[in-house]
Design a protein around this nucleic acid. Sequence first.
DNA 1: CGACCGTTTGACGCAACTCAACTTCGGTGG
DNA 2: CCACCGAAGTTGAGTTGCGTCAAACGGTCG
Lengths: 244, 244
Amino acid sequence: MDETLRKDIHNSGVPALCRACEARHRGVCGALNVEQLVLLNKHSVRKKVEPGDELVAEEQDISNYANVISGVVKLTKMLPDGRQQIVGLQFAPDFLGRPFSKASKHSAEAATEVELCAFSKSLIDRMIADSPDLEHKLLEQTLNELDEARDWMLTLGRKTAAEKVASFLHLIAVHIDPEAQDADGPISFDLPLTRADIADYLGLTIETVSRQLTKLRKDGVIQIESNRHVTVPDVLRLEERASL
Amino acid sequence: MDETLRKDIHNSGVPALCRACEARHRGVCGALNVEQLVLLNKHSVRKKVEPGDELVAEEQDISNYANVISGVVKLTKMLPDGRQQIVGLQFAPDFLGRPFSKASKHSAEAATEVELCAFSKSLIDRMIADSPDLEHKLLEQTLNELDEARDWMLTLGRKTAAEKVASFLHLIAVHIDPEAQDADGPISFDLPLTRADIADYLGLTIETVSRQLTKLRKDGVIQIESNRHVTVPDVLRLEERASL
DNA sequence: CGACCGTTTGACGCAACTCAACTTCGGTGG
DNA sequence: CCACCGAAGTTGAGTTGCGTCAAACGGTCG
């Protein structure tokens, strides 16, 4: 026991893949000791998936969990007639999967190119059962996701199209560069979502998203290069537009 | 240890208040042993609050947690200019509070008359730390709330006013009488929310809510008595209207 | 009874949707 | 390298669902 702890600190015994991993400390794996990490590593596999690839279908059985190593995953729900809503975005090092439930209530799809570290559900469920730290990490992530979901409900229910689009840009900007939260330097980033995805995230149509983006551009709040790359000269002006 | 377990089964030693409590088995308290229950009971207090009473203000420090014993609590968020959105409803035996965070991100207000069992945050936080079962229960409730929040995001982002109102009625009907989920008998209940609250929950105006309710009434999908009491003759017809 | 609050109903305006044409981007093959 | 193609994004014109404003209704309480 003492032994493993010391090893943990010195990183010896930690699988090479984990040592170089984004999720190793920030994600749920941070709660695991060397022994568990080695075990998990044996039963995990790195995957790279392309934009549009479906990871989990709605109502489908879930046999795997995964950590997002890089890229963005969108969680979507659909009405019987095909109307769609993105109900969450997962960035690295988020944990993907729904513990204690057989079937997922939404589908998960790669929005960009995504790297995953996937492992079997049953192994994790067992590890959760005898590692309180792991469960604690999961609870923390889940509480954060709940806060984010509720923030977004305010956006969906009460903001105008213009405010929604500004809110989206702000959300991405902050996720790309967490330090830029309230800094006043310019931020620059690639949108991980197409206009159609943005519309599905905001509860709008493609056309409305496009119009609001051009409006923000004409007003000098953002610059747009090649449709995907966005520069925000002044984050505070963006926040105003988002009614934050 | 053996002793306490046996006691637990026989209910002796369990505080009288807890023995008669809704949350005792279904809620988070179900994860506690007699010893913990006695300790918690010493530091907990039953409260009754009136509709409109604020339990936790947005951004305010949280010094207390609570279980909902009866009634409905609404969780709300506000934009700087006053626009409001209800981001969640808590029914008995839900747990109220946000662990691992000093300040709440939304305000909590009694929608109806509400009975609470309140206890100090610090005590619970300590109990969570050394009772994995308690943390497990919390994780389960949080995951369920997250699922509900995401379901509602679909409603807010993609449904029409008519579908939203039908969805709301369905949600209440199911919460009041969980067995009525897909049964075909008539259901009857009191709305726990005013028209203004319903509007804030659905991202609509009072007037639109009212108009859609009268439309449902005229179409025979619901009956309304005295503004608050609603009867649903056929739940399936309501589900159709809600696009479920 | 009259004041008040919650709700309903009606008339009108506008923000966002729909439909449609056009432009730009990115990749592919001649 | 340029020509071509399909996909993604933009822009415009017309429509509509929901919001706004305003008035009336009904129940409750002092």
